[in-house]
Design a binder for these strands. Structure first.
Lengths: 253, 253
DNA sequence: CGGCCATTTGAACGCGCTCAAGCGCGGTGG
DNA sequence: CCACCGCGCTTGAGCGCGTTCAAATGGCCG
């Protein structure tokens, strides 16, 4: 998959572990890095990392690739509760602490690192407890984003829901890459966009075409999105870009 | 407001602080209790505890009363992202860590205790860090419940959404009180139930009447709910009661 | 070339929304 | 004490958005 110069790729950070362990004390950092390194796994696109209601580790850190947290109804309808991008964490456990509340699925080929409950407990004992400090802002940003999405799924039009999702993913990717490039690769089928926004794939298709007919976006290949008018898109999504950048994405300095 | 013997009340636990601080080391517990005691506040029903996008403390613990976490669109539509019951925590901050992602509103008269960022940081330094251990399961249960709600708002019928909300609140209250009484006081207007379930108040009304015509629930006073057939309600909500109790509510032993 | 999957487009239906009017209850003030 | 008012619940009518069903198109890979 050759990359054109104008399309964002989600490639591994050169020193991926450094991002999470930044800010850790020097004497904790090597131990942490070793732990992450030991538990690094590769998962192929489409396969499950964890199944809903099955035992799971409490903490995963995504190094590379996109991950969906899904829940589904008996009738087969799927809702994607969150999408995890590189350098974000997955906290899949439900209140019991040992089984997963979500179906954790790899949307692309994924590289991730996990920490077991025992390892996490042991890290908690470190003084001071850096894990919490590292996870807190990521977890808070995820909560806030899920709230934004729930608001729009509950009360927004189809156009607003799709525009919001594109805006959210665009700003989160933009935050990672640092450049200001309006194109990105969206490794989601229209069905998956529908699962994420609470729409049918048919209506996602109609909505995307309407947005592109308005000149706001372009769908060159069916997976590469060009955002021509980010302000208009954010307007439809009812998003304030600056506020969103400040509060919903976790800075990767 | 005299309480009948068959209607659950949400009254203060006699030794409320003990619940959260249970499991803390003896030498941390008095300090923690003093901190909570010092920062206890009373809020009247209907008033805001924290406004969206405004500075906030990072941690609140609800001792008494019901609290809604709301988000709203420019057009005035409100979505209640979560409802916090006594002995649950509020983590209102967004990714930036200092401002609130939600409008935190008292649904009833509320008693709560807060911890500032500085106090939280200082508690984090305690060895071992009990705060995280205390918050983790509460936070995980909240995430799981929000996922369940998002799934139903995205893909469920009105009947399923309302049945789910009644089931969730019923099981959470039941968990608190320990008894197995099918009646509870629901301090929500139909408008607020609509905000919570992503429905209009008109359709909430129709749905509640349909459920009561089927004999599944009864709405004696317009705020006291009797659940005649919890299994049928859970069936409509697509909820497995045992699984829900195990994973979505945090045991109050 | 054939098969499969995702996208696209059309047609029709139905759920939940909006608008609007009527009702019931509690609180307030003349 | 009763009249008034306001808020929340109830019910009806009609509509529109997003759904489902169905078929056609297009791209990729064997």
């Amino acid at each position: 998959m050759p990359s054109t110069s104008t399309v964002k790729q989600t490639e591994p950070c050169p020193a991926a572990f450094d991002v999470l362990t930044r800010g850790f004390d020097a004497h904790v950092r090597p131990r942490m890095t070793a732990l992450l390194d030991k538990n690094t796994r590769h998962i192929r696109a489409g396969s499950d990392i964890v199944a809903e209601d099955e035992p799971t580790k409490p903490f995963y850190w995504v190094l590379e690739g996109w991950v969906a947290l899904n829940k589904s109804l008996q009738d087969g309808h799927v809702q994607t509760v969150d999408i995890i991008l590189p350098s974000d964490v997955i906290l899949p456990t439900s209140g019991g602490g040992s089984v997963s509340a979500f179906d954790v699925q790899a949307l692309t080929d994924v590289t991730l690192s996990s920490i077991s409950a025992a390892e996490l407990d042991s890290l908690e004992m470190a003084d001071p407890p850096h894990m919490w400090s590292a996870i807190r802002p990521l977890s808070a940003a995820a909560r806030a984003r899920i709230g934004e999405r729930m608001l729009r799924i509950g009360h927004g039009s189809a156009e607003m829901r799709v525009a919001y999702i594109l805006t959210e993913l665009y700003l989160r990717l933009d935050n990672q890459c640092g450049d200001n490039c309006p194109s990105f690769h969206l490794p989601l089928t229209q069905q998956q966009i529908g699962d994420f926004s609470g729409l049918s794939s048919v209506h996602v298709c109609r909505t995307l075409r309407r947005l592109s007919r308005q000149g706001i976006i372009e769908t060159s290949d069916h997976l590469d999105i060009v955002i021509n008018d980010a302000d208009a898109l954010a307007g439809i999504a009812n998003v304030d870009i600056d506020t969103f950048k400040r509060e919903m994405v976790t800075p990767v300095p």
